[in-house]
Nucleic acid binder design. Structure first.
Length: 350
DNA sequence: AAATCAAACAACCGCGGGAAG
DNA sequence: ACTTCCCGCGGTTGTTTGATT
C-alpha cells in the first residue's frame, strides 16, 4: 500500500544532535510529554522529523538510561538472551533495565559477536563453527581448544534434548520464559533448572564433579596447575567446608541449569566450563556446598574426565602465567563459555 | 606531527504491525 | 473491508575517537 514518508525532507536537519537541540527536546518532553512524535518537532521548535526526535529521546536523552561499560552480568544476559531470541534487540532490552535496544545491538555487533567468533563459536547459532575446526593451521593450541569446545557442545546438545524431553513432565517454565514479563531470564532459567534438578534421582555424575573440584583446586592453589599426575587423587578429595545450606529452590544463579543437564548425561562434557564459571562467580564455598548437597557415591573415572578437559587445561595453564589479569580474564571467559553452553540449542524458540 | 586504519557509537532508513478513520 | 497514519524494530550507514605507523 502507498506509504507517506515519515517526514518532509525539505528543511529538516539530519545528522548529529547539538546540545541546544537536546535541550529543546528534553524541555518539551519534560513539560508536555512526547505525545505524537510527528507533531512534536514543530511544537518544540525543532527542525527535525518526529522519528529523529523519538530516536534521540529513546536512545540517548531518556533520563532512565544507563550509559557506560557493560557489566559482566549484563554481557552474560545478552549472550544468553541472544541465544534464545536471536536479533530481537527490543525483547532483549526488556531484560536489561536502563539499556536501550540500540545500545545492546551495537555492543553485540562490536564486542560480543567478535569474541564469540574468536572462540570459534558461531554468533548466530551459538554453536561451534565446523569450518573453524577443520581449517586449523595444524595441531596448535587454539585449534585443540576449539576441538574440545565442540566436543563439549556436542555432548551438551544431546543432554539438552534428553533434558527437554524429561522436563515436559514437569515445569513448562522454560517455554514460557518470555511471557512472564519483568523477571530476569537468569532467575527463570535457574528456577526451571532447579526443578529439573530436584526431580532427578541420578547421582552418577558426582564423582566427576568431585574430580573437577579437585582439578579446580589445583588451578587455584598457589603455583597454579601442577600437571595431570596430581589429579588422579582428585576423585577422593576431601570436600570439607562449612555446613551446606544450599537451597536450589531459592538460590538463583545463572549456571544451575547446566547442573540439570549433568544429571541425565552420562558424559558430563559441559562440566569444565560450567563449574569453573560457577566457582568464579560464587566462590569455592559454593562449589563445596553444591557437591555436598548433591553428594552421592563416588566411583568415577578421573582419567576420562581428564581427556575431555585437555583443551580447557591448556587455557588454564596459559593463564596461570597471566599476572594480575589472570583472575579477571579467567572469570570472564569461563562465564562466557558457560553461558554459551547454557543457551538452548534451538533458537529462536518462538 | 600527520596520515591511516580500526573500533565504537550515534543516527538514519525502510519495513511491518496495529490503530484509527 | 480498506486506506492511511503512526510507532517501533532491525539493519545499515555515517561520524567520531583512539591507536598505530
Amino acid at each position: 500500500m502507498g506509504r507517506s514518508p515519515c517526514c518532509e525532507k525539505m528543511g529538516l536537519k539530519k545528522g548529529p544532535w547539538t546540545p541546544e537541540e537536546d535541550q529543546k527536546l528534553m524541555a518539551y518532553i519534560k513539560e508536555h510529554g512526547h505525545g505524537s512524535w510527528r507533531a512534536l518537532p514543530a511544537k518544540a521548535g525543532l527542525q527535525r522529523c518526529g522519528k529523529s526526535c523519538r530516536l534521540r529521546w529513546t536512545n540517548y536523552l531518556r533520563p532512565d538510561i544507563k550509559r557506560g561499560k557493560f557489566s559482566l552480568q549484563e554481557e552474560q544476559t545478552i549472550i544468553q538472551l541472544h541465544a534464545l531470541l536471536g536479533n530481537r534487540w527490543s525483547a532483549i532490552a526488556t531484560h536489561l533495565p536502563k539499556r536501550t535496544d540500540n545500545e545492546i545491538k551495537n555492543y553485540w555487533n562490536t564486542h560480543l559477536k567478535k569474541r564469540l567468533t574468536k572462540m570459534g563459536i558461531d554468533p548466530v547459532t551459538h554453536k561451534p563453527k565446523t569450518d573453524a575446526l577443520s581449517s586449523g593451521d595444524g595441531p596448535n593450541k587454539d585449534s585443540a581448544n576449539l576441538s574440545h569446545m565442540a566436543q563439549w557442545e556436542s555432548a551438551r546438545l544431546e543432554a539438552e534434548a534428553r533434558s527437554a524431553r524429561e522436563s515436559k513432565l514437569g515445569t513448562a517454565a522454560s517455554n514460557n520464559l518470555f511471557q512472564l514479563g519483568s523477571t530476569s531470564a537468569h532467575h527463570l532459567l535457574a528456577k526451571t533448572a532447579s526443578s529439573q534438578l530436584l526431580n532427578s534421582s541420578s547421582t552418577q555424575c558426582l564423582d566427576v564433579l568431585k574430580a573437577w573440584q579437585g582439578v579446580w583446586s589445583k588451578f587455584t592453589q598457589p603455583g597454579g596447575f601442577q600437571g595431570w599426575d596430581n589429579i588422579s587423587s582428585a576423585g577422593t578429595l576431601d570436600l570439607e567446608s562449612p555446613t551446606s545450606t544450599l537451597n536450589f529452590s531459592e538460590v538463583a544463579f545463572p549456571t544451575v541449569e547446566n547442573l540439570a543437564v549433568l544429571e541425565c548425561n552420562g558424559i558430563p562434557s559441559t562440566l569444565p566450563e560450567l563449574l569453573t564459571s560457577s566457582t568464579a562467580m560464587h566462590g569455592d564455598a559454593w562449589m563445596a556446598d553444591t557437591l555436598r548437597t548433591m553428594s552421592g557415591s563416588a566411583s568415577g573415572n578421573v582419567a576420562a574426565l581428564s581427556s575431555l578437559m585437555e583443551g580447557f587445561t591448556d587455557i588454564m595453564v596459559d593463564n596461570t602465567e597471566g599476572g594480575d589479569d589472570y583472575e579477571e580474564n579467567k572469570n570472564y571467559w569461563n562465564s562466557i563459555l558457560n553461558l554459551v553452553n547454557a543457551s538452548p540449542s534451538n533458537s529462536p524458540v518462538f
